[in-house]
Nucleic acid binder design. Structure first.
Length: 889
RNA sequence: GGACAGUUAGCUCAGCUGGUGGAGCAUCGCCCUUACAAGGCGGGGGUCACAAGUUCAAGUCUUGUACUGUCCACCA
C-alpha cells in the first residue's frame, strides 16, 4: 500500500471494512497474558443479546475504545473482553412475542422446548449486536467473546450461589416483593419504576364495633379492603387516641379489625387514619410484622381476587375496585373521593403496574455485604465524576436484601432441589443424584431462575475464567476502569463491587467512569416512541465511523448529558475530510522520499520550530486529558492542532520550501512535515482508528514500520519545546493577519498583491522579518515587502500594529480611503476599552499592594504594550486624516 | 420530601487550580490562492440566570433565589 496516492475523497465504507477484517484476522487485539507491559483491562458492559446498537452503546463503546487504544499506545498489555448478556426477562419477552405471532404461548411449548427456542433465536439474531460493535471499530479481543449463559459463566454463577448459600448470605423466605402480573415474576426493588399518575383518594368510613362513632380512612386502593387486618393511627394524634385498642368493622365484609398506633403514620396526610393491608403494601407488611397482625392475601399472582375477598372472588382487581366502591357508597360509608397524583410502580420491562405481592423468594443478604462495597470508595475505587459518590453511598446505606429469584424460564436456574420424600433442601453446584438425607432420588429442582443482574455482577471475573485460577485473572483482575452510564450504577456497578470483593478479595476495578446520557437536540431522552432516535449504524453508513466516534468523544464532557443531532456528526465528518486532504497534500510533496534520520531539535526555519513546539504541547494535552477521562479536551486539542495550526498555517508555510531549489531546505521541510503528520495520526488514532490507519499505511516507507494499531504513543521531545521561537512565529502570524484584515475591511480582493512597509521596534524584530520575508510575502500575498527601522510611511496608508511593529499598506486611489478612518477608529475604541480595564487595576493601590508581583508585572507590561500600540495608531490616524483632507480639498 | 446536575454568543457546548470571556455550527462580506468550496480569508454577535458575600480581582469560590433536568424515596 505504501507510497500510493490517496484517492481525492475519503470513502469510509471500504476502508473501514478492510481494516476491520484485517484486525480480526490478524488478532491484533488479542493480548498474551505473559506478554510485557503493565496489565490494563476493561470489560464491556454486556449489551442485551436481543439488542441493537443504540447511540448510548455507541458513546459507551467509543469512550472505552479510546481508552483501550490509548493504553496500548502507552505500552500496556491490554485486554478488552467483549460479550453479551442473556437479559432474562427482556429476551424471554422478545421470543414470546415472536411466538405470539404464531399464535402460541410459551406454555404451549413447555419449558424445555421454549428454552431451546430462545437459544435458537440467539443463534439467529445474537450476532447482530456483535457485528455492530465491530462496525464501531471496537478493538475487543474476539477470541475471548463471552455470553452470560456460557458454560463457564454458568459455572461461576452456581459456584457463587452455593457459596453464598453456605455462608448464610443467600436465603429463601416469604416476603412481600414487587410482582409483575404480566411477566409473571418477582422484580427487584430497582426494577420498579415509579411514575406519577393521576388517581383518587377514597375516604371511607369504618364503624366502631362498640360505639356509634366511626373512623374515616383514606386509601388509593379500595380493592385491597378485603385484605385489611388493622386500622392504624399515630400514637400522639389526639383526634384518634381514644380509639386505640378498640375494634372497627370492616366495610362490606364485616370482619373485626383492631385499631393500632404507630408513629409511621403521617398525621397530615388524608385523614391521618390508615388502613393496613399487610399482604398488598410494602409499608403495611412492615406494620403487620411489627404489630403481629394477620396476613391475608386477597389478590393472586394474576391480579385476580382470591376466595379470601369474599363476594369479590373471581373479579380482576380493577373490577373489584369499581364494585367495592359502589357497595360502600350504597352502604353510605363513602365519605368523599378526591383526586390525587401519586407515584405508582411499573415494571421496567413491560410497564405493567407492579403489585406488591407476598410469596416465597430467594434473597441475597446485600444488607450484610454492602458496607464493604461502600468502604472501598474512594480508597480502592475512584468514581468519576465525583458527584456520583454520594449517590452510590446513599444507595448502599439504604439497601434492602436483593430478591434474586424470577419466575421466568430464560436464565440461570436456581441450583436448589427439594427432596419430594423428606422435604430436604439441597443447594449444589452439580445436579445431585440422590437426597443426602433420605437417599431417595425424587428430587425436584426449584422452578425459578436468577435475576439477570446476578450473573452480570460476576462479569469482571467470570469472563476471565473464574473460578479457575487463570492466567487472565492473575494478569488483568482487578480491571483498570469500568466505563458505563450512570443509569446502571445500582443494577450493576454496586453489585459488581460487592461480588468482586467477596469472591476475589479485591475490588473489580480501580476507576469507575460514569458517562452521560445521550439525548436529542431538544434534550429529550431518545426513544423509539418519540421517534427521535439517532441510529448509530445509520450514522456510520452515512458519515463514516470515525466522524461518529469523533463527535461522541468531542461531546463527552464529564458529568454532562450530550445533546446530539445529526448535523453535529455531519460537521465532524468535515474534520475527517480535512485530515484526509492534509494527508493528500503531504503525500504529494513527499513523493519518492523515504523517511531519513534527522534530529528535529536541530531543524532551522521558524515555522518548523514552531509546529514542532506546538506538537509537543498537543501531545501533553492529549495524554493529560485522556488520563483524566477528559475526552472532550483530548478531541478538542487534536482538532485545534490539526485544523488551526497544521492546516491553516503550517501547510501554507511549507509551500515555499517545497517549491525551493535548495535541496536541503526542501528535505528539511519534507522531514518535519512527515514527522508531524505521523504523530498527529498517532494522537488521533484512538478516536478515529480507520482514517488514520489508512493514511498511515500510505505514508512513504510504511512497509518499514509497523501498522498504526501497533505504534506507541509518541515520545516527548523536550528539546523541541521552544517557547521563544513559538512566540516569534506568533508575531509573524499577526503581521500576516493584519495585512489580510486590512485587505478584507478595505474591500481589497484577498488575491490582490499589495506593498507592505514594516517598521520594527528593534534589530531583532527586523532580522526576524527579513529572514522570513519569502514566507510572509507568499502567505500575505505581497508584491513587495520593505522593512525599515526609520520608516517614512506615505500618509495615505492603511496601518496596524503588531508586537510594536508598525504595519503599513500604502493605498492607491482605487480604494475607499474613508473606510480606513472608520477601521482605525474601531480599533482604537477596542484598544481604549482594554486599556481602561488594565489601568483600573494599575491605579488601584490595593491591587499594587496585594496582587502577586508576577501579576502586577504582567499587567504593567500589558498596559505598556497597549499604550504603545494606541500611540502608534493615533499617529497614523492623524497623518492619514491629513492626507484625506488634502485629497478632498 | 431528599440528593445531584445545569443556567455562558442565534444554536450546541468548552472554560480544570480566581488575573483583560473561547470553540464548532449558524450569520454577514470577500475569494475557484495548484490538499480540501465538506474549502480559504476576514467581520459582526455575550451587563457569563438573579441577588448578596469573600477578594486588590469572581463566569470561576460561599450562601440564597428562580427556572430546567435527572436520580432516589413507602406518604396510604
Amino acid at each position: 500500500m505504501a507510497e500510493e496516492m490517496l484517492p481525492s475523497g475519503y470513502e469510509p465504507k471500504d476502508v473501514e471494512a478492510r481494516w476491520r477484517r484485517h484486525w480480526e484476522e490478524d488478532k491484533t487485539f488479542t493480548p498474551d497474558p505473559d506478554g510485557p507491559g503493565e496489565g490494563y483491562a476493561i470489560v464491556i458492559p454486556p449489551p442485551n443479546v436481543t439488542g441493537a446498537l443504540h447511540i448510548g452503546h455507541a458513546l459507551n463503546l467509543t469512550l472505552i475504545d479510546v481508552l483501550i487504544r490509548y493504553a496500548r499506545q502507552k505500552g500496556k498489555n491490554v485486554l478488552w473482553v467483549p460479550g453479551t448478556d442473556h437479559a432474562g426477562i427482556a429476551t424471554q419477552n422478545v421470543v414470546e412475542r415472536a411466538l405470539a405471532r404464531e399464535g402460541k404461548s410459551r406454555h404451549d411449548l413447555g419449558r424445555e422446548a421454549f428454552i431451546d427456542r430462545v437459544w435458537q433465536w440467539r443463534e439467529e439474531y445474537g450476532h447482530r449486536i456483535l457485528d455492530q460493535i465491530s462496525a464501531l471499530g471496537c478493538s475487543v479481543d474476539w477470541t475471548r467473546l463471552r455470553f452470560t449463559m456460557d458454560e463457564g459463566l454458568s459455572r461461576a454463577v452456581r459456584r457463587v450461589f452455593v457459596q453464598l448459600y453456605n455462608e448464610g448470605l443467600i436465603y429463601k423466605g416469604d416476603y412481600i416483593i414487587n410482582w409483575c402480573s404480566r411477566c409473571h415474576t418477582a422484580l427487584a426493588d430497582d426494577e420498579v419504576e415509579h411514575e406519577d399518575s393521576a388517581g383518587h383518594l377514597w375516604h371511607i368510613r369504618y364503624h366502631l364495633k362498640d360505639s356509634q362513632e366511626s373512623l374515616v380512612v383514606a386509601t388509593t386502593r379500595p380493592e385491597t379492603i378485603p385484605g385489611d387486618t388493622a386500622v392504624c393511627v399515630h400514637p400522639e394524634d389526639e383526634r384518634y387516641s381514644r380509639f386505640i385498642g378498640s375494634k372497627v368493622i370492616l366495610p362490606v365484609l364485616g370482619r373485626e379489625l383492631p385499631v393500632i398506633a404507630d408513629s409511621y403514620v403521617d398525621r397530615e396526610f388524608g385523614t391521618g387514619c390508615l388502613k393496613v393491608t399487610p399482604c398488598h403494601d410494602h409499608n403495611d407488611w412492615m406494620l403487620g410484622k411489627r404489630h403481629n397482625l394477620e396476613f391475608l392475601q386477597v389478590i393472586d399472582e394474576n391480579g385476580m381476587m382470591k376466595a379470601e375477598s369474599g363476594p369479590y372472588v373471581g373479579l380482576s382487581k380493577e373490577e373489584c375496585r369499581k364494585k367495592i366502591v359502589e357497595d360502600i357508597e350504597k352502604a353510605g360509608d363513602l365519605v368523599k373521593v378526591e383526586p390525587l397524583t401519586h407515584a405508582v410502580g411499573h415494571c421496567y420491562r413491560c410497564h405493567t403496574v407492579v403489585e406488591p405481592h407476598v410469596s416465597t423468594q430467594w434473597f441475597v443478604a446485600t444488607t450484610k455485604l454492602a458496607p464493604q462495597a461502600r468502604a472501598a470508595v474512594p480508597a480502592l475505587t475512584k468514581i468519576f465524576p465525583e458527584s456520583w459518590i454520594k449517590t452510590y453511598y446513599h444507595w448502599l446505606d439504604t439497601i434492602r436484601d436483593w430478591c434474586i429469584s424470577r419466575q421466568i424460564w430464560w436464565g440461570h436456574r436456581i441450583p436448589a432441589w427439594t427432596c419430594q420424600d423428606c422435604g430436604k433442601l439441597i443447594v449444589s453446584e452439580e445436579t445431585p443424584e440422590k437426597c443426602p438425607a433420605c437417599g431417595q432420588n425424587h428430587l425436584l429442582q426449584d422452578e425459578d431462575v436468577l435475576d439477570t443482574w446476578f450473573s452480570s455482577s460476576l462479569w469482571p471475573f467470570s469472563t476471565m475464567g473464574w473460578p479457575d485460577k487463570t492466567k487472565d485473572l492473575k494478569r488483568w483482575y482487578p480491571t483498570s476502569v469500568l466505563v458505563t452510564g450512570f443509569d446502571i450504577i445500582f443494577f450493576w456497578v454496586a453489585r459488581m463491587m460487592i461480588m468482586g470483593q467477596h469472591f476475589l478479595g479485591e475490588v473489580p476495578f480501580k476507576d469507575v467512569y460514569l458517562h452521560a446520557l445521550v439525548r436529542d437536540a431538544e434534550g429529550r431522552k431518545m426513544s423509539k416512541s418519540t421517534g427521535n432516535v439517532i441510529d448509530p449504524v445509520l450514522m456510520i453508513e452515512k458519515y463514516g465511523c470515525d466522524a461518529l466516534r469523533f463527535t461522541l468523544t468531542a461531546f463527552a464532557a464529564m458529568g454532562r448529558d450530550i445533546r446530539l443531532s445529526e448535523d453535529r456528526i455531519e460537521g465532524y465528518r468535515h474534520f475527517v475530510n480535512k485530515l484526509w486532504n492534509a494527508a493528500r497534500f503531504t503525500l504529494m510533496n513527499l513523493a519518492g522520499i523515504s523517511p531519513r534520520a534527522c534530529d528535529p531539535a536541530k531543524v532551522t526555519g521558524l515555522h518548523h520550530i514552531w509546529i514542532l513546539h506546538r506538537l509537543e504541547e498537543v501531545k501533553d494535552e492529549v495524554s493529560g486529558a485522556l488520563e483524566n477521562y477528559r475526552f472532550n479536551d483530548a478531541a478538542q486539542a487534536c482538532y485545534k492542532f490539526l485544523w488551526g495550526a497544521f492546516c491553516d498555517w503550517y501547510l501554507e508555510l511549507v509551500k515555499p520550501d517545497m517549491q525551493s531549489n535548495d535541496a536541503q531546505r526542501k528535505e528539511d521541510a519534507q522531514y518535519v512535515l512527515l514527522l508531524v503528520l505521523r504523530e498527529i495520526l498517532v494522537l488521533l488514532h484512538p478516536i478515529m482508528p480507520f482514517v488514520t490507519a489508512e493514511i498511515w499505511a500510505a505514508l512513504p516507507g510504511s512497509d518499514k514500520y509497523p501498522e498504526l494499531a501497533r505504534v506507541g504513543y509518541p515520545e516527548a521531545r523536550p528539546q523541541c519545546k521552544r517557547p521563544d521561537e513559538a512566540r516569534a512565529m506568533e508575531f509573524l502570524q499577526e503581521v500576516i493577519v493584519s495585512v489580510r484584515t486590512i485587505k478584507a475591511e478595505l474591500n481589497i480582493s484577498p488575491g490582490k498583491k499589495v506593498r507592505l512597509l514594516l517598521q520594527p521596534v528593534d534589530e531583532a524584530q527586523k532580522e526576524l522579518l527579513l529572514s522570513n520575508q519569502e514566507v510572509i510575502m507568499q502567505v500575505a500575498r505581497l508584491e513587495e515587502m520593505h522593512v525599515d527601522l526609520a520608516l517614512q510611511a506615505p500618509r495615505a496608508s492603511a496601518s496596524a500594529v503588531a508586537f510594536g511593529c508598525q504595519i503599513v499598506v500604502p493605498l492607491r486611489g482605487t480604494v475607499d480611503l474613508a473606510g480606513e478612518l472608520t477601521r482605525l477608529d474601531k480599533q482604537l475604541a477596542k484598544l481604549e476599552k482594554n486599556l481602561l480595564n488594565v489601568n483600573r487595576h494599575l491605579q488601584d493601590e490595593n491591587f499594587l499592594a496585594r496582587a502577586s508581583e508576577e501579576v502586577v508585572a504582567r499587567e504593567k507590561a500589558t498596559s505598556c504594550d497597549l499604550l504603545d500600540k494606541k500611540e502608534k495608531l493615533l499617529a497614523m490616524r492623524a497623518r492619514f486624516a491629513e492626507a484625506l483632507a488634502e485629497e478632498k480639498s
